[in-house]
Design a protein around this nucleic acid. Structure first.
Lengths: 262, 262
DNA sequence: AAGTGGTCTAGACCACCCG
DNA sequence: GGGTGGTCTAGACCACTTT
């Protein structure tokens, strides 16, 4: 087992890699964080499972519990793990997370809960295609690489509200079907974790106001001149690897995109 | 000076108020955080100034440096203070902050820096009015209470891009003039700090896609059917007191609203 | 050299959860 | 009662900034 400190009697030595040299100085807890992160992305612990206790990790890495604690603090702040007092620390998951639909910021204008009767999904199509230049760039692929493209509509209380086009790297999502997209209960990102082992960790969104083209207007059943929110999202797994491009059109008559600034 | 622990030989005792009882359990560092917060909102240290060192605060509150540290950690995470290694901990300010325009998420499509030649401001008007019902509700005032209402346009590289209507509680912002809004260099929120002692700490935004009315279209010099981003912001000072309502219309032809999810 | 924030440790005890 | 995360302390040393 790779231990980190070279001299237990001389705590807080600047740096000491695990064989591979650590070039710039980084605090011990950052190195521990890196090691835990590595185990996370290698799937040593699966989403929803508990990771070893702080004491165990401290013993494994030969550091104090406080140092492990600070490492886990940061992972928890980034939503990569979840702590539960008295129970343990768990690998975060898009399923069974108190905040379902973590990345969906669209809220109904009335009723502070976003829930009020889940969305109905309707998958319009799902096919294998070759990446166009812009899709390839967003997903860090080469042009013409295989990607899976899907289109679906989300309705709230029967009202079509979101039209989404989704692009996924063909390699990682080989075999994804329209049926799978439609029938899975709960967040699509949870399905990605379970069926493909792909965990989305963070995302970036670019938001604009646009008018729908005739086809989009028809699908959403709105007049052609209806202003819509265009939300382009790139979702990333571990290590900032982009794994999904999603272009959404949101009807904001009875909903709004909610954001908190600080 | 009010000390907190009653018994220094028995560290980590559950709770011990400063005279006034602390009803529910809250860790010591949270209580310290509350005390520091209190000093912040009472203006014991002004924006940009350094607060006492961790050792000094530890001595003042009769706790260990580590406990003060954890309290300040949270304040720093909430952007209420800023730490600078080797120098001290400083009261956060909207002026001289590396991230100017902290609350403005509109970015040019090209050029990752938001800067590229600051915005030009044009104040259209600024007057004292009585709060309408919705403005009063947003600002936690009574209907017909005095408020200051301002309208201005921000242009980037000469192109009118943002039309903003701003409402401020008349009491706290007595004497605010159009000239003041127009001539101040730097973030308006910095001017609020300096001229009115009001520090905005966080904000909430509701975003929609809308069409401008004829007047709005004229001011922004766009065609009537141009879709625009409607951004309604409520900004809060300490203690979650709302101090500003702002309704913005963003032109998203060459800009986009950028958001990071995690 | 002195002061500040930042890291690390070791040990104690508290709050919570479960068997 | 025993395990887990959470809090608190005291003391040491590191990294950065200023005098």
């Amino acid at each position: 087992m790779s231990s980190i400190p070279l001299n237990a009697d001389n705590p807080a030595q600047p740096a000491a890699g695990t064989g591979a040299a650590t070039p710039a100085f980084s605090p011990l807890y950052q190195q521990i964080k890196g090691l835990i992160l590595q185990s996370l992305q290698q799937g040593e612990w699966k989403p929803g499972e508990a990771i070893p206790s702080e004491m165990e990790l401290a013993a494994r890495f030969r550091v104090s519990q406080g140092t492990v604690r600070k490492a886990i603090d940061e992972l928890a702040a980034e939503n990569l793990v979840m702590r539960r007092q008295g129970k343990g620390t768990f690998v975060a998951t898009h399923a069974e997370q108190h905040v379902q639909y973590r990345f969906l910021k669209l809220m109904p204008d009335t009723g502070d809960a976003r829930g009020e009767g889940r969305a109905q999904r309707q998958v319009i199509d799902c096919k294998r295609v070759r990446a166009t230049a812009d899709v390839a760039r967003a997903l860090a692929l080469r042009s013409a690489d295989p990607v899976i493209q899907a289109r679906r509509v989300l309705s709230f209380v029967g009202v079509p509200t979101i039209l989404e086009d989704i692009w996924l790297p063909g390699q990682a999502f080989k075999g994804l079907t329209a049926d799978q997209l439609a029938s899975y209960q709960g967040p699509t990102y949870a399905m990605f974790e379970i069926d493909f082992g792909v965990r989305m960790v963070r995302a970036e969104e670019k938001i604009r106001a646009v008018l729908p083209d005739p086809e989009q207007a028809a699908v959403l059943k709105v007049a052609p001149g209806t202003p819509l929110l265009s939300v382009e999202r790139i979702a990333y797994t571990y290590n900032d690897v982009p794994m999904e491009l999603r272009r959404g059109l949101y009807l904001t008559d009875t909903h709004h995109y909610r954001n908190e600034l600080s």
